[in-house]
């Protein structure tokens, strides 16, 4: 079955119910539906292909083992993301174990929301770059964020989960998600502005 066929006929709740009842094919359909997004998210959080593959496998194997624990109070994908995020953060912590900066470092001083780089972008920057170049630019910008900001941005703005779902997946308060998201968005905006700003322009040109 092609991914297009799966997508067009995809009924998450039905597949989950069937998988919980022991239908193996239903579970593999769920894997096929979500593997791309789980893998992308794992790569973005761990920044490491090997770790991302481990996260991908562990996520679906744990999901299968714990299917009975899924009560349907959230979307299946949100539940899956929560497993994947936990796995990815564990990998990240292991990789960073020689460093002293914790993932949940205090970051919200409430005073550090700034925007230094102020310049309009060239029109349609995505047309100036190949798809691959564009993907690399965007990936590099995300990877330059601190993990605490990165994870929130990945879930909210790349996976397009709601603020509430992001908070649930990361075990954070709504206000913590919003605060981190603001900083993540502003930092990315600055990084991309350096890349995409219209040549010859600077902040003063708009005053």
């Amino acid at each position: 079955m092609s991914s297009t066929t799966i997508a067009s006929a995809f009924d998450e709740a039905d597949l989950v119910a069937k998988a919980k009842a022991g239908d193996a094919d239903a579970f593999t359909d769920l894997v096929n539906q979500y593997e791309r997004r789980v893998f992308r998210m794992a790569k973005q959080i761990t920044q490491n292909d090997e770790d991302a593959e481990d996260v991908l496998q562990e996520t679906f194997l744990k999901a299968y083992s714990h299917l009975d624990d899924f009560q349907g109070n959230s979307k299946f994908y949100t539940w899956l993301v929560r497993i994947a995020v936990n796995e990815a953060l564990m990998k990240l912590r292991k990789r960073r174990s020689d460093k002293t900066v914790p993932l949940d470092e205090p970051i919200d001083t409430g005073e550090d929301v700034v925007a230094r780089e102020v310049a309009v972008w060239e029109d349609n920057p995505e047309q100036r770059y190949s798809r691959e170049e564009m993907a690399n630019i965007l990936d590099e910008a995300v990877q330059s964020l601190k993990p605490a900001y990165r994870t929130v941005f990945v879930l909210r703005d790349i996976e397009e989960m709601s603020i509430e779902e992001t908070a649930e997946a990361l075990d954070l308060s709504i206000s913590a998600v919003k605060s981190r998201l603001l900083r993540a968005r502003l930092q990315l905006r600055e990084k991309l502005t350096r890349q995409f700003k219209r040549k010859g322009d600077d902040a003063l040109a708009y005053l």
Binding site: R36, F39, V118, A119, W121, A135, D157, I158, L188, F196
Partner: peptide
């Protein structure tokens, strides 16, 4: 400018498709 470029930042990321594994 900040509002416009932040909106564009979100738009370019939302347009990213997850590549095949």
């Amino acid at each position: 400018v900040i509002c416009d470029t932040t909106q564009k930042t979100l738009t370019v990321y939302k347009g990213m498709e997850a590549q095949a594994v």
